[in-house]
Design a protein around this nucleic acid. Structure first.
Lengths: 321, 321
DNA sequence: TCTTCCCATGAGAGCGCTTTCACGCCAGGA
DNA sequence: TCCTGGCGTGAAAGCGCTCTCATGGGAAGA
């Protein structure tokens, strides 16, 4: 009967319910999560697997996920993947011991097949920002291609016709999408990107510097930089300024991500905003919805990027055109 | 008997054990965390309560904690406190439903009494970076006072005799400690800080800018800035440079925290490094140790800060002295 | 007033483990 | 050969809930 009162199920007399509630209050009784979990077969906990917690935008997506998970009365069990095989081991055992009801994943490199297995075995899984295209999978993604397009369009409007691209890690899907969007837009404007001006970076500040220094060393002229994340854009700005050139007038720089750092570079960085927190929220909501009865969509939910214009981009001065 | 094999307890025949193990292997059997938890009365999960996940150094301490927690086969249940009372409600109910065996806390403002209650009631709790001094409490702290001292010593050695201090939020203990360490060291050198050159900031980039602009507006001369975190130090650098002054020669700037951003300011920031990841690790280790039988120390474990000298500080030029 | 039906509640069987208890068996001493 | 110890193992009682099933009592219909 107490159980009925607590869960609000079954027919029961209002006065009895009130009396039970009163006693519960007096005793300060709280049901044990463990026992409830065992009896019900569900834990009201969702797992979240992330590659690393120290990436600059990770906090945002985590915060987004935690917010909705908590507001639904669920708990968020955190797993990372920075001790390689051992991490995976630990995680796998937690999965099979059914420590959680569903899973949010920012895919650590090379674990996709495993994650797919879990999904196939019936564990509700939502992927965040799948680097590889995985159409038949519940996931939340962002418009990397369109982000690349918007950066290109912005630079074209400013009269920048020889952009240097500092890419992300080559094996990530997002790198290709951002590059393709950018390249295609330039192509539409009748400008083919010089392949020598596409530098493979690795998302670090240093790689941004190296990209610029490399181009300069090769005596390749450029009037803009499109970096695939803000950190490398920051490095690029830095390297450009060191040569005495001005940002934005000599070289305009566009980044990607819009982490807080982007607002604090000198000059503040124009960048493609990724809605990290919203992505975390959306993924969590999908999962919560599933627990509530809504089936998981078997495709990605795509959240749009937005171009944030700050001061690192400006029209090309007449004299140089 | 299966249970005995799995837990390695009790006397049992080696051949039987082997046979059991084989069958377990064949069946792919994994004990249910829920049932084990209920039967044993422990969940092998530790909770972690943090004010916000988006603070720049939060990822580091989280990562440190997760690393050791995971390596011990425990899980990390994450709670945040950015929806005020509601968050607290949720968290409290999780506590009383015994969802976890122990708790790691980066104290959200104004929850200390509650946390203390939990500790008094027998929940193992380890605090990270207690802003208020709480001597009788297991915690991990860092040397804020000594950090302030080291910043002061460094600036004094460079001949900087009129520093501007941009503090953190006034009600935080760390703000006072950093300021006291700094002030006392200057006092020892025979220099009393000009109270007008102590500006109350709030740990934001903007507050760093405002601090500098305020001092400049009041026509207060200064040849150095000590900011209580890196973000506001970045803002300070920016504001100083905007007036045409040089960092480090005209004004040397020292920050606090040593977040990744500190390496990317222009010029790279000299700062007091806080061992965030180590603090997370140490706290988690304390808790793990407790589960292993070692009692919790009833005082803080203090990890030292280190001064990281980069390019935002330099000796005072002769001509200006 | 008697029967029928339904609503509110108590009893009890799980959920999948751990842990205690007791029993059976074999080795060693009398 | 019989008795005493232990060791290895099966049986069963929880852990603290949920949920089904059965029961009792009161209202409504005859």
């Amino acid at each position: 009967t107490v159980s009925r009162v607590l869960n609000g199920k079954g027919e029961l007399d209002l006065r009895t319910a009130e009396r039970v509630r009163q006693v519960i209050e007096e005793l300060g009784y709280v049901p044990s999560a463990r026992a409830v979990g065992l009896a019900r077969g569900r834990t009201r906990i969702v797992g979240m697997l992330v590659p690393s917690l120290t990436w600059p935008w990770m906090g945002e997506v985590l915060q987004g996920a935690v917010d909705v998970v908590e507001s639904e009365g669920y708990g968020l069990l955190l797993f990372t993947f920075n001790r390689g095989a051992e991490s995976m081991q630990q995680f796998a055992s937690q999965v099979s011991s059914q420590s959680f009801d569903g899973l949010l994943v920012i895919e650590p490199e090379g674990t996709l097949t495993y994650i797919e297995q879990l999904h196939a075995r019936g564990l509700p899984v939502v992927l965040i920002d799948d680097r590889d295209k995985r159409p038949q999978f519940p996931s939340v993604a962002t418009t990397n291609y369109a982000g690349g397009e918007s950066a290109a369009r912005h630079l074209l409007e400013l009269g920048r016709r020889r952009p240097l691209v500092i890419t992300g890690v080559e094996r990530f899907g997002c790198t290709h999408e951002r590059l393709d969007g950018f390249r295609d837009t330039y192509a539409e404007a009748g400008i083919e990107l010089d392949p020598r001006l596409v530098y493979e970076g690795d998302f670090t500040y240093e790689s941004g510097r190296r990209g610029v220094q490399h181009a300069l060393g090769e005596r390749l002229g450029f009037d803009a930089v499109f970096a695939h994340n803000d950190l490398s854009a920051g490095g690029a700005i830095q390297a450009v300024r060191e040569t005495g050139r001005n940002v934005p007038s000599d070289v305009s720089v566009v980044g990607f991500d819009d982490i807080p750092y982007a607002g604090h570079t000198e000059p503040p960085l124009t960048t493609v905003h990724q809605p990290m927190r919203q992505m975390g929220q959306a993924a969590a909501r999908m999962l919560m919805g599933y627990f509530g009865g809504t089936p998981l969509p078997d495709g990605p939910q795509v959240l749009p990027t937005t171009l944030i214009v700050r001061s690192s981009t400006a029209p090309k001065p007449r004299s140089h055109q």
